[in-house]
Design a protein around this nucleic acid. Structure first.
Lengths: 326, 326
DNA sequence: TCAAAAGTGTTATCCTTACACCCATGT
DNA sequence: ACATGGGTGTAAGGATAACACTTTTGA
């Protein structure tokens, strides 16, 4: 897809974080270990060029090559962010066109009953600190917090251009002291880890020199370039969005039990929810309606099956108000 | 900035919706009436190319030409969205490189006491239906709703690929019947108006033929290309954001009264807020602290002056929760 | 003393959180 | 019968929404 665009030519690369949930595990479509150069062996998100001659919009372009490459017909697709950072993408000595990356979040269900083979990977393998369903992840206290605290007290704890001090940011992102862990801040945590030099990709970008006190700069499974950043953006956006838009149903089959729905939300949110409150929320949000049938294979009492109630969309103003009416 | 990139060459255009508030009126920086071709006489947002050879990131590029062009040192800057639609930008017969537009929201204060002369314009002149501070805008019932209802019942009220019917979308966007007016849906309203052919730019894009029953397709002040769309995105994002991030203080001087703060929020939200509830919100959100001084020129009882309490950032998880703890 | 705007007090209501408990099935 | 998950009732606490009222200045 190299178009010989001259020294300052620009190419658009579309990157897709295609998210699904399989057996209570959020997974993402990847291309395994094909990255070259400094990122050899790292995973990639599916990506492709935007060719304005073939596709009217970037989203149709993305849908089309995802279908070709992976055989996936995407439903929900949302643009996340565009990056144009020089040096981020290029190999040393690279003279090719400059690449602007545009990240997308897509949600899909796996073909029912199909086990995700190669081509998918558990998202929390890339962000082990984000899954609190079995309590606070050990890696936080054993590997991360000590190094982060050292980073926070380094250089006077201040960075240029940032109104917050390093330790304020640390507290905010990682829920220290008065602050609490906010599951939506996936990207902010990723960026702080990147700045603090705790991620492999920070080294390859030459952003942080390998320090004596940072012997193991690799946290989580390796991923190429800014692809892990795009995935972090996707997870943060998804966690935020399920709170005020019914996107979770993009990840559900057409009929499901309330427990299955809750488990799916929990897998995305990375934490447990209170059963009854969750049910009340779903119920009084009028998000679902019973199908009238039961699931008998629960291992206990049979569970009612529900379906998504599309009518909520025109009905409710979408929760999430702050300042109130008058 | 034309780089001769070949037939399929791509250029990145950065567009800035630079928003401020002057005397309870939200305003935006514009370039007046300089658009050419089909949009002659329409206003433009400030824009400039992204040159990866000069700027490491797109945001620094944007900051730099905004400073050059307008002498504005931007504080808060946020990327909104990237558009690559073919035909949207080009003149008929155009053979130049394809342009991908990236929209940004920036917030700034006017130099104190300075009247915004040329170069700024009231945002609600572009979206007269968005300002509900003096009650429901007349234009809705006199000009818009009749035409929108006709559009909704046209063609069986259904569009391909959209799960909602036209009248459902109309109700949702414009607060018909059970639905209420949601101030955040600025972009959705804009897009619906565009689809329904009520905006001048829909005609120029050839999307909607001029119909007999649509004699006046011009609502609001004219703006070039997709610039009004970018501005709509910016307003929607800003209205949403002030509810869970303290960005409103980017629009305030360093000291202000609570009433001034409320008026500023109201000007952005496009509606009135309950005085006391607003104060309680600010107070128990611990967003401000008294400076100890008063403003005596209120026209009535002097008002306490406050300043933004930066410490809220590390303290509060940022309001806006949906599913709850445990 | 009166207009104008700042700044409370108080209540009804709803939503959130969490407690504990009951129900229907397979083994 | 009992283990296993499905499925409720209800009450305490807090946030919200709306009432109307008092205070302090300038003219």
């Amino acid at each position: 897809m190299s178009l010989e665009a001259g020294p300052a030519g620009i190419e658009i690369e579309l990157n897709a974080a295609i998210v699904s949930v399989h057996e209570e595990t959020p997974i993402v479509a990847i291309v395994e270990g094909l990255a070259q150069g400094a990122d050899r062996g790292a995973d990639l998100l599916p990506f492709g060029p935007f060719d304005p001659l073939r596709h009217r919009t970037m989203e149709t372009g993305l849908r089309s090559w995802v279908l070709e490459q992976r055989g996936i017909e995407l439903g929900y697709v949302e643009q996340l962010y565009s990056f144009g950072d020089r040096g981020r993408h290029a190999e040393p000595g690279d003279t090719g066109p400059h690449v602007v990356s545009i990240g997308y979040l897509a949600l899909t269900q796996l073909p029912a009953g199909k086990k995700p083979r190669a081509g998918w990977h558990a998202i929390y393998d890339y962000f082990p600190w984000e899954d609190w369903r079995d309590g606070r992840p050990d890696i936080l206290d054993s590997e991360m917090m000590p190094r982060l605290r050292r980073w926070a007290s380094d250089r006077g704890g201040r960075d240029d251009r940032n109104p917050l001090s390093r330790s304020e940011r640390l507290a905010l992102c990682f829920g220290v002291d008065p602050a609490v862990w906010d599951d939506e801040r996936v990207l902010e945590r990723y960026e702080l880890l990147y700045e603090a030099g705790l991620l492999a990709e920070a080294l390859r970008d030459g952003r942080v020199a390998a320090n004596a006190w940072q012997p193991r700069p690799i946290l989580g499974r390796k991923m190429r370039f800014d692809h892990r950043r795009i995935l972090a953006t996707a997870m943060g956006r998804l966690r935020a969005k399920i709170k005020y838009r019914p996107v979770i149903f993009e990840l559900m089959p057409s009929a499901f039990t309330l427990t299955e729905l809750q488990k799916t939300v929990e897998s995305i949110a990375g934490r447990h929810l209170h059963k009854q409150n969750f049910r009340r929320l779903v119920e009084q949000g009028q998000l679902v309606e019973p199908t009238g049938t039961n699931r008998l294979t629960t291992g206990g009492r049979p569970a009612q099956l529900f379906r998504f109630r599309r009518e909520v969309l025109p009905e409710r103003p979408a929760p999430g108000l702050r300042y109130a009416g008058r």
